Amino acid sequence: MIFVTGGAGYIGSHTCVELLNAGMDVTVFDNFANSQIEALDRVQLITGKTVRVIAGDIRDGDALRSALADSGATAVIHFAGLKAVGESESDPLRYYDNNVVGTMRLLEAMKALDIKQLVFSSSATVYGVPQFLPYTEKHPLSATNTYGQTKLAVENMLRDLYRSDETWRFAILRYFNPVGAHPSGRMGEDPQGVPNNLMPYVAQVAVGRREFLNVWGNDYPTPDGTGVRDYIHVVDLALGHVKAVQYLARSAGCNAINLGAGVGHSVLDLVRAFELASGKAVPVKIGPRRAGDLDAYWADPALARELLGWSVERGVDAMCADTWNWQKNNPNGYKGVN
C-alpha cells in the first residue's frame, strides 16, 4: 500500500494512475485546498481500480497518524504542499507552515508507525541561479524564492533525519517543468484562478478562456530571446515516482534525483508547438522581464537513469497534444460539463 499525500493534485493524480497500473494499492490523503476530488474519480475510471480517499490536512498530526496507520502503508509519496512562487513571496509564513511544518508532522507520524520509505516531491528551484548547466545533483543549492526555500528546508530535514538514523530510505525527486495531461483526455492540470504556469495558460488562450498569453521578456540571451526551460510530460514524471517507490523497496539511502528531459525549450518554442497540436492561434503580448526569472536551465537526468532506470519517453509534441486533448474536452476543468 502506498500512502499519497496531495494525491488529488495534478502530479499526484497522474501518479496514482501509474501506481495502480503497476499493481500497487493506493490511499490518498488530501485537504482539497488546490485540487478536486473529481480527479480521483477520473483515476478510478481510467484504471478500473479503487483509490481509498481520506480527507485531512498534513498539519493535523493526529489525523495524519490515524490515517497512515489505518492505511497499512509501507511507503509514502509526499506531494502535499503549496507551490505558487508569487504567493510564497507575499505570504511566506503560510508556505513554511504548510510545506515545512506539514512535512515534519508527516515524518513524525511515519516514525511513530515505523514506516521509513518516503518519496518527496522537490523542485529544480533548489538549485537557484545556475553556476553551470545542465544542473546535476551536485550543483550548489541556493533557492531564490520562498517556495524554493521551503523545498530546500524539507530536503535538509530529510538529510538530517537520515544522518541520525540510516534505516530511513528517502528519494528526493527534483522536478523540472511538468506539463501535459493523461492521453485519455480525462485528466490534466486544472489550476484555480489565473494559471501560474505556462502550459495551462497557453491552453486556456487556445480554448478561448483568455485573450492572449503574456510573455515576460524577449531579450534573454537565448535563441529567440524568451526563457528556456526543461519541460517534462506529467505521465513520464508519474512513472518516475513508480520507479522511485520500487527503488526504495530494494535500496537504502537518501538520494536527490533530477527528473527532467535534459533539453531546454523556449517559451515561444512551446507556443508554436501548441499551435501546431491544437490548430488554434495563441496570441502573445510581450512584457518586461519578471524579477527573479532565470534566462535558461535544464537537467542532467543521468542519475535517474542510473538509479531508477528511468528516462523520458514523451516529447514536446506529445505534451502539447495531450494538454489540448484535455483542455478541449474539459474547457472549464473538472468543474465543467464533460
Rank of each mutant, 00 (worst) to 15 (best):
195 P>N: 10
163 R>H: 14
148 G>F: 04
137 E>M: 03
120 F>V: 03
140 P>M: 08
135 Y>K: 03
102 G>M: 08
186 R>D: 12
98 N>A: 15
159 R>D: 13
124 A>G: 08
185 G>F: 00
153 A>I: 11
143 A>D: 03
195 P>Q: 08
123 S>T: 14
104 M>F: 11
116 K>C: 03
153 A>L: 12
180 G>D: 06
172 I>E: 02
97 D>T: 11
193 G>I: 10
147 Y>D: 03
149 Q>M: 15
150 T>L: 09
140 P>G: 11
146 T>A: 04
120 F>W: 14
184 S>R: 00
164 S>N: 13
130 P>R: 13
105 R>I: 02
99 N>S: 03
191 P>N: 10
105 R>F: 10
123 S>G: 04
187 M>T: 01
166 E>A: 14
97 D>Q: 12
133 L>Q: 10
194 V>R: 13
192 Q>V: 14
186 R>F: 14
146 T>Q: 07
169 R>A: 12
133 L>V: 09
139 H>R: 06
165 D>I: 12
128 G>E: 06
152 L>V: 02
179 V>P: 04
175 Y>V: 06
177 N>E: 10
158 L>A: 04
193 G>H: 09
114 D>T: 09
149 Q>C: 14
174 R>G: 00
127 Y>E: 07
98 N>F: 10
186 R>H: 14
109 A>H: 01
115 I>F: 08
99 N>F: 03
138 K>A: 13
157 M>G: 04
103 T>E: 00
143 A>Q: 03
191 P>T: 11
102 G>P: 06
166 E>Y: 05
168 W>Q: 01
172 I>P: 02
96 Y>F: 15
116 K>I: 05
159 R>N: 12
114 D>L: 04
174 R>C: 07
103 T>H: 06
193 G>F: 12
143 A>E: 05
104 M>E: 15
118 L>E: 06
181 A>R: 07
193 G>R: 12
118 L>Q: 07
184 S>N: 07
105 R>C: 13
188 G>T: 03
155 E>I: 03
169 R>V: 01
191 P>M: 00
180 G>I: 02
147 Y>H: 12
161 L>A: 13
108 E>T: 15
188 G>M: 06
96 Y>L: 14
149 Q>N: 14
162 Y>C: 05
